[in-house]
């Protein structure tokens, strides 16, 4: 197995929303078998980067390419069948059972139900969720939903797994199960991109950590390399040193149309006006 070959490259990727550069000139190279942690605060650009990596967003500048084992390069949005994605919201249908949720995605991947079921059972046992597969997900805890979404993302045997806060809301035991599963996937040659707020989490599970801040990559390396680069004794200090400049406050998620903006402005008393009125 060619576990060290390059799988994904991002060259000068920029993603701009209006005036805001959510991702600003990101160069990245991922190898097969890597577990890469994408770490950053709110508004750092992690979610946008993940969406670029799974082809949901097209870069404003630059490009992201997938390199097949045969040496062929293809844009990322053309190889979605090789991706498994667990979004932060998990994206489960509450009126369907866990298995129906998984089967829906497997069918859209063109996988036979029998094959999908066998794969699901294998991973469900590892996550201790096999007894819950025929339950509606409406009553599921956050942890159960995360596990179901993880099973759903793995059902078609993806080459790259993109996880957005995969252990958020999970109890200690469940979070450990997820981390063990991720390592197991890596051992089998899979590549995992693991977005998280928590440095400790990233340190436990990732071979390599990418720190993002204000849409840019501030550092990319193993935990030891990050600490060495910043002359700090632990990852937290390294992170603070790398992201010490002021974080931007503009939210890229709050885009709105012209009419909506004019209407909101008209109906929202500005602080300035309020102060003038109070002075009068």
């Amino acid at each position: 197995m060619n576990t060290l070959s390059t799988l994904l490259t991002s060259s000068g990727v920029v993603k701009q929303f209006g005036e805001i550069r959510a991702v600003d000139g990101v160069n990245l190279s991922l190898k097969r078998g890597d577990i890469v942690g994408l770490v950053g605060g709110n508004g750092a650009g992690k979610t946008t980067m993940l969406r670029l990596l799974c082809g949901l967003y097209r870069p404003t500048e630059g490009g992201i390419s997938f390199h097949s084992k045969s040496g062929e390069n293809r844009p990322i949005h053309e190889i979605r069948e090789k991706l498994g994605v667990v979004p932060e919201s998990t994206g489960l249908y509450h009126r369907l059972t866990a298995w129906e949720n998984i089967r829906y995605h497997s069918r859209l991947h063109g996988i036979d139900d029998d094959v999908a079921w066998n794969r699901t059972l294998r991973f469900a046992n590892a996550l201790s969720i096999s007894d819950e597969l025929h339950r509606h997900t409406r009553g599921f805890s956050r942890g159960m939903r995360q596990k179901t979404a993880l099973l759903r993302a793995l059902v078609h045997g993806p080459e790259i797994l993109l996880l957005d806060e995969p252990t958020a809301g999970l109890d200690v035991t469940s979070a450990r199960m997820v981390r063990e599963l991720v390592r197991k996937l890596r051992d089998e040659g899979g590549t995992v991109i693991y977005s998280t707020h928590h440095l400790a989490e990233a340190q436990m599970v990732c071979d390599r950590i990418i720190i993002m801040h204000n849409g840019q990559i501030r550092c990319d390396g193993t935990p030891d390399e990050l600490m060495a680069e910043t002359n700090t004794g632990n990852l937290e200090d390294a992170y603070v040193a790398l992201t010490s400049d002021v974080a931007r406050t503009d939210s890229i998620e709050e885009k709105e149309g012209k009419m909506a903006r004019i209407w909101r402005t008209l109906l929202t008393p500005s602080r300035h006006n309020k102060e003038v009125a109070e002075d009068e």
Binding site: C54, G55, L56, R80, E81, L83, V85, P87, E88, S89, T90, G91, L92, Y93, H94, H105, L108, H109, A149, R152
Partner: peptide, 13 residues
């Protein structure tokens, strides 16, 4: 609103 659209859009559909 429920966030299920994002997961579907990641599929090869």
């Amino acid at each position: 609103e429920r966030g299920t659209m994002e997961a579907v859009l990641c599929l090869p559909v």
